[in-house]
């Protein structure tokens, strides 16, 4: 693997006494999909929050393509090309689906006061382009969403809301995508469908790196090139899925037996 896209070294995050991340080293290459697993409370979401700048880590380093993103403000990290979904869905339920999705690309659009207010024709053209993109994206995950692009996000089911969140994360053409339990609450078939859609999308964006947090091992097996297992904020395993299954440390971690 040549220079990794995301390189985290010695990441440590403490909440008062609790060490949620403990000297974590994780690297992700361009176009790679890493499955991040671990028991509840092992620090997976915290890792995402640290990478996206929502939590200020206590120590360590975060680099995206050699650019230092350690403890930088979230908006800077977002603009650098990191997008994510949230474990607990965070959408603007009163706004339309389109508004929600386009938020993911806003920082790449022309946000100047003058051009938004007075170059309306140009703005309408830009809008047309974004609506097409949002619709195409939504169509991949569920055609119904594409058909109801201008209805409130709150009128959709939880599962569709998760799909909308994924569209929001993808529309800005990120370089690194962090998915935090995207299939939570979905049935087995829905999960499969979602993963198929994601895999199909990945075909078109070969450089996109993905870190996927997922409890369903089936999903992890299908989509990830490499797996990382966390326990108590520490990396206890890294390797292929098959090696993961066979690893005794992982088994004890999941069975809750203390080492």
């Amino acid at each position: 693997m040549n220079a990794p896209l995301l390189a985290c070294g010695g990441l440590t995050m403490r909440f008062d006494g609790l060490v949620a991340l403990d000297g974590l080293d994780i690297e992700v290459g361009k176009g790679e999909t890493v499955g991040l697993v671990g028991p509840n409370g092992s620090g997976k979401t915290t890792f995402f929050n640290v990478v996206t700048g929502l939590y200020k880590p206590s120590a360590g380093s975060v680099r995206l393509d050699a650019r230092d993103l350690f403890a930088k403000p979230p908006q800077m990290i977002g603009r650098a090309g990191v997008a994510r979904t949230f474990q607990r869905s965070r959408l603007m339920l009163d706004q339309s689906v389109f508004d929600n999705i386009v938020v993911g690309a806003l920082c790449r659009l022309d946000l100047g006061l003058f051009s938004n207010l007075f170059r309306r024709r140009r703005w309408c053209d830009e809008l047309g382009g974004m609506v097409d993109r949002a619709r195409a994206l939504a169509h991949r995950f569920n055609p119904v969403i594409a058909d109801r692009l201008f209805q409130p996000a709150g009128s959709f089911t939880m599962i569709d809301r998760r799909r909308i969140e994924i569209c929001r994360a993808l529309i800005g053409a990120p370089r690194l995508l962090l998915l935090d339990e995207p299939s939570a609450g979905m049935t087995h078939d829905e999960t499969r469908q979602l993963m198929d859609d994601l895999l199909a999308f990945r075909q078109e964006m070969p450089d996109l790196a993905v870190i996927l947090v997922e409890h369903e091992m089936d999903v992890i097996r299908r989509v990830s090139d490499r797996c990382v297992v966390l326990n108590f904020g520490r990396k206890i395993f890294e390797g292929t899925f098959d090696a993961l299954i066979a690893n005794p440390d992982v088994q004890t971690a999941y069975l809750g037996v203390s080492q």
Binding site: P74, G78, A83, Q95, D99, V103, N116, W123
Partner: peptide, 20 residues
């Protein structure tokens, strides 16, 4: 776009900042 940005910032500062 500004209107959408304002709505995003109002309804969820965390999500808005994550998206730049």
């Amino acid at each position: 776009w500004i209107g959408i940005a304002l709505d995003a910032v109002r309804s969820d500062e965390t999500a808005a900042s994550v998206f730049g």
